[in-house]
Amino acid sequence: MNAVRVNSIIKTYGKKKEITALQDISFEVKPSELYGIIGPDGAGKTSLFRILTTLLLADSGNATVDGFDVVKDYKEIRKRVGYMPGKFSLYQDLSVEENLNFFATIFNTTIRENYDLIKDIYQQIEPFKDRKAGKLSGGMKQKLALSCALIHRPSVLFLDEPTTGVDAVSRKEFWEMLKRLKEQGITILVSTPYMDEAGLCDRVALIQTGKILSINTPQGIVDDYKKPLWAVKSPNMLQLLNELKERNEVEDIYPFGEYHHLVLKNNIKREELEQWIKQSTPEAVTVEAVRPDIEDCFISLMKN
């Protein structure tokens, strides 16, 4: 049985249903899988999570979580999922411990009962348990929020953009925590606008304007990328970009870190490539064949 099964979900907003948030979305998540929904703001991630956590009704299609229907069995689902909404902030005026205690009681449990599950995470903030949640740093808040979402030992955990606005250090720590949770058998659905986080998931669905572009393992997505991809660099990057954009052989070129990534229509030899780049840009140019990463794939999928 799949932990989550989504079948042809359509969701629109507005009086005349003029805004489409999700257009015919289907996917499945296996038990204890770390599943990433990767896409920019406005892709429909939050709508999808709200439908799965029974907070929203889809226009059509159906979905199950832990085998229960999200419409019919919403009460059953509410007992067994954990959810961290995107804009979720804890009760700022309650202490760390009071927050956790409160959520434990609301979910009919106690901290002690499930301490082993949150121990790893909670221990890091336990020294500050009397501090008000409002006085915690971003990273600590996030740990507390995760502890609260886990306190009733959910079978499926929904994390809506948990790392948005969080700095690189805290993001890294957060993903390490998720990995350990997964080992405890919890199915995790996590959404993020950061493409580089895709590689940390077991499987990902790339989503854009309410449509799924691709579902695969991170490796699989990269392997699906068949076009020749080169990294190019010169002292004048803007000029390089503008010059190469005009060439017929070039399908796409875009900045990528310290390089520009150059997508070609046909395979050519390195020497040949260097040659015609030098024609237009005589300055010292570095050219290297590179393996695509998720972001290259996303860009390519988006443009098709």
Binding site: T53, T54, L55, R78, F103, I106, N108
Partner: peptide
């Protein structure tokens, strides 16, 4: 949202 998702 959390309250709604909780069994309460």
């Amino acid at each position: 949202e959390i309250m709604l998702v909780s069994p309460m």
